[in-house]
Design a protein around this nucleic acid. Structure first.
Lengths: 182, 182
DNA sequence: GTCTATAGGAAGATAGAC
DNA sequence: GTCTATCTTCCTATAGAC
């Protein structure tokens, strides 16, 4: 096998950046070529089913990084408070303090093909389930609802950040994310 | 002036639906023609600067409907509790109980041209300011933050609804929206 | 595995008749 | 104000050499 000019991880990173900035339909193959440093024929060699495959690869890579930064700390050993704290730190890091949009939300917002939409639901479910389990350990009532509400607060704050330019709401949402339920 | 085949309001409504479903880049002129019932030359007659103008018209129409349903009740006379209640009712109606995505969020998520993005910030600011004023009347501390957080909760719940298909989080976010601050 | 070159079609936008 | 017809550009995807 001939060595790849660009490592798979670097390609995936570049695809995530491009799709996050322009959306699925807004990102043209030409843009993905510029982002990855590969010509279109090379991209199609790696992703034979075309743009949908490129979006799926980006989604998988983004979900993997998110899982490592945010979900894994929730699933790790330790007391609930410190697991929430480590997960919140992962959130700040992953979204660069609110300056980065969520690829899931961008794809969910519109126009992504069916297989991509399926991946979104799975990634959200994994986060919600892990957070629900931690909140249940704290003895919170309706931990599933509380988990969904905290996740919604984070996503909503990212919408505001993109709409208004201010990341203050994101910082508050993450702070609330690491607190124990009342 | 020759009578229009399709009323301006009907055209605006159709544009909102199409853009909300497919996003800015995902909605082709062809799709907008099917949605409005007009041929492309007729659309360009009404919107001489092309697709960007069509998106701006959709945004203005959506913001107008949102202002009437959600923001005006906040700015009306009456005690804070009933203004919040009427605004929350407008939210449920406007987003069809969480089943409809927010055009602002769809455009904000990605790929909308600069003039459209400016309109988004203005619409969000109007909502936030009106909500802040009502919350300040209730004597809440940091009413501006509280307003932003409530708005973020609604938008986040709409992201979840689109990603997971469940509108439960939206219903909770709106219920919290109409409550007085603690 | 990556490239140049290009097919084939859909995209945004316009001309000019009615 | 709306239409048919069309222009040009851009897009996704592929063929085939290296």
């Amino acid at each position: 096998m001939r060595p790849a000019k660009v490592a798979d991880e670097a390609v995936a990173d570049a695809l995530v950046s491009a799709f996050r900035r322009d959306g699925y339909a807004g990102a043209a193959i030409r843009d993905l070529c510029e982002a990855t440093g590969l010509k279109s024929a090379s991209l199609y060699h790696r992703f034979p089913r075309g743009k949908t495959d490129m979006a799926l690869a980006a989604l998988a890579w983004a979900a993997g990084g998110f899982g490592e930064a945010v979900v894994s700390p929730l699933e790790a050993a330790g007391d609930p408070a410190s697991r929430l704290r480590r997960s919140a730190a992962g959130l700040r890091r992953y979204y660069a303090g609110g300056r980065l949009a969520c690829l899931l939300a961008v794809f969910a917002a519109s126009e992504a093909p069916e297989p991509v939409r399926d991946g979104i639901a799975a990634a959200l479910a994994r986060w919600r389930d892990a957070l629900t389990a931690v909140l249940a350990e704290t003895g919170a009532g309706a931990p599933g609802d509380e988990a969904e509400d905290r996740i919604a607060a984070v996503h909503g704050s990212l919408v505001l950040a993109r709409g208004t330019g201010s990341t203050a709401a994101f910082r508050r949402a993450v702070s609330r994310m690491e607190g124990l339920p009342p």
